[in-house]
Design a protein around this nucleic acid. Structure first.
Lengths: 218, 218, 218, 218
DNA sequence: AATGAATGAGACTTCATTCAT
DNA sequence: CATGAATGAAGTCTCATTCAT
């Protein structure tokens, strides 16, 4: 498992995705719920089977192993967590000169906040597994470092030219941004999902904080 | 386990702490290492026994159960993670009028950064267990909300009087602070401990970010 | 299964034999290969299905059960392993007085060597199953003791009359012969098929050895 | 398993052998019985546990895996099946000029016949596993080719010098001998152990047969 | 205090087989 | 004729825990 790259797995998953039986979908659904609640390691396949109303063998017929079931849950989320950057909106930013970095940042954060909010459980599962699996962690790091390179670099270069970002390597800028955003997400969605949070305020905070960190005062 | 409050457990642990034999200490040491690396649920007591060079039974003689061993690891960390607020330094802040909130914040962050740095592994274990155990999460929340109430409230009130903090309930202020700090710690120490981080810069960033969020512009 | 006699099964198999579709033949082919390589018990029907390029259900549609598939492999071999004695050649021996037992023996051994050589895999499967299945073993014993009785008895009586065989019960003579021949076959084909063997020499040896054992010095 | 050489495994087994609990011995005992009766692959560890009167876990505590239990059964047999050649008897043959190859052969065959007779079950298990496991087969071949080289070569050279053996490479002579002996053993002990066999006659036959094959007529 | 043999529940997984399509 | 989703019993193995020594 650890040897294969993400995308290979994600692609082979994708193929199955289309053919997913009703039962298969139910299994994934239940797995997400239970993995999120008690953790992958503490959830047994027999529990999942029971809760999904299928025979235990069915899980293995379709997913091969418990671990592959985990990846069937995690990978689509991971893949979907990035490509959105290719959105029309982002293309806008690059072409319309009056768009400020702040708007861009706000949009990104709102968008990703919404995404994670809709996938709270998987996000939590991912965080725990990132903590426990060296190989997954490394693959995710290199995945995020490589995949959107071209596009993201363009965007950051653009804003640097416009004098809205301080002059540090893009990689540094990005890491600072991600630290803030994901640190916040983890705290909010994974650790303390039951506390009340006011999205408007939270987004505003995050934006300010990041702007202050890597933005240039005009 | 979930029924007992933290402090009861912590106290009963403390008693044992003093009597810890060499083997006991080795067990705790090894447990920290392995829990941090693969997670509590995926670490077996037999592995721990082997790595610690003791018989399987020895672990249970001393700690009673695997779960109690976990708490023997977590609780001292949790307890130690707060009381430092009673430091002489903090007393200083309250009495010396020229101390700014910024210095206070910087000091706190440096101090806690140092503490977590020295206890990376336990911190990681705690985070995972917080994610997986509802009861632990709730107890920690109420533990942090109650325990230092008196002292912390005084501090925040003081700075509010001095006009350095915006006029929001202390609980809100504290949560904003903690979100930033812990979100950052988790990202840095638990998720991506192998990346390079520059402490001076990071602390500065954190301070700015928080000041901007809850500080008052003079 | 164990209750039915060989011949009943063999006959019912024979019927199917003629109707065998392409897929059925592929299944049998693959089954022979895999049973021979890893043993019947360690080969799963799903492996066979995959290797044969058919659906799992197809195997059961045609053969009913895994065990019946095994017998579909073994029985034709067993049946074919004897009747050859009804050959024209053997008829010759009985009628032509100048034929010596040595020629007869050489012919038989060459013939069976050739047969087993062409069916190495099935022979190996049969040996293993004889080792593991009491009922099969007993049925084979009685099958070989009964089936060609008439014919074989005639042959041995003939050679006894000609003074070429020592005066022991036919059953003893036959067993001595079979022990040598099959003992050799098992060693050569089942156990160490990768070693090099020189057929001419090996046959000569076997003949000498058996002649010495049950032949009469003129 | 397949990577490690025999002797390494045999030695590590030997260590355990000395410390064998009563329960461990019972497990091995029962395993031999059941493996011999139904085959390794068709015997479940739960059956063994039940028949041995132990918990299933106990088997794995002591033997690690079902396969290692198999090797705990097979290896001592394999090792013991050779070294006997270092016997006083054999030393005798080499030093006493009046000892004929025939006596030597008779002694060897009697000795090994006795050995296999006393270990019928394990012999049968070994034969089946040799048939099903490529790696075991290869290791056994090289084990028998290497281990007693020195001694055996001396013996055969001695008899060649005395003019009692035909002038072929020792390896050829040995293989011819082994084929006869083991071919016979397999037929007798593994395949048809219920038939009646007269040891005196059988040994005599085997000796004659082999003498005829590789002995020199004076 | 420490051991390690023993346990049995339960984990993940495989298997032969069935059946609706 | 052929498929492949679904099954649930059974298989191997792991685990936390106990207890006699």
């Amino acid at each position: 498992m650890s040897a294969k790259s993400f995308m290979e797995l994600a692609i082979s998953q994708a193929k199955n995705n289309q053919k997913m039986t009703e039962k298969q979908q139910k299994i994934v659904e239940v797995a997400i719920e239970m993995f999120a609640e008690k953790g992958y390691a503490s959830t047994s396949t027999s529990e999942i089977a029971k809760a999904a109303g299928v025979a235990e063998g069915t899980i293995f017929k379709h997913f091969g192993s418990k671990e592959k079931l985990l990846y069937s849950v995690i990978l689509p989320f991971l893949v979907e967590s990035v490509p959105v950057l290719a959105d029309e909106f982002i293309q806008d930013v690059l072409t319309k000169p009056y768009q400020h970095f702040e708007s861009f940042l706000t949009a990104i954060i709102k968008n990703r906040l919404d995404f994670v909010k809709r996938n709270k459980e998987i996000f939590k599962i991912l965080v725990v597994e990132l903590l426990n699996r060296d190989d997954l962690r490394e693959q995710v790091i290199s995945f995020f470092q490589q995949s959107p390179n071209q596009l993201i670099n363009n965007i950051f270069d653009t804003f640097k030219h416009r004098g809205e970002l301080i002059d540090l390597p893009n990689s540094t800028l990005i890491r600072t941004m991600l630290t803030q955003i994901f640190g916040y997400f983890i705290f909010r969605f994974a650790l303390f999902p039951t506390l009340d949070w006011d999205d408007t305020i939270e987004v505003e905070h995050l934006v300010l904080v990041i702007l202050r960190g890597i933005g240039k005062k005009e």
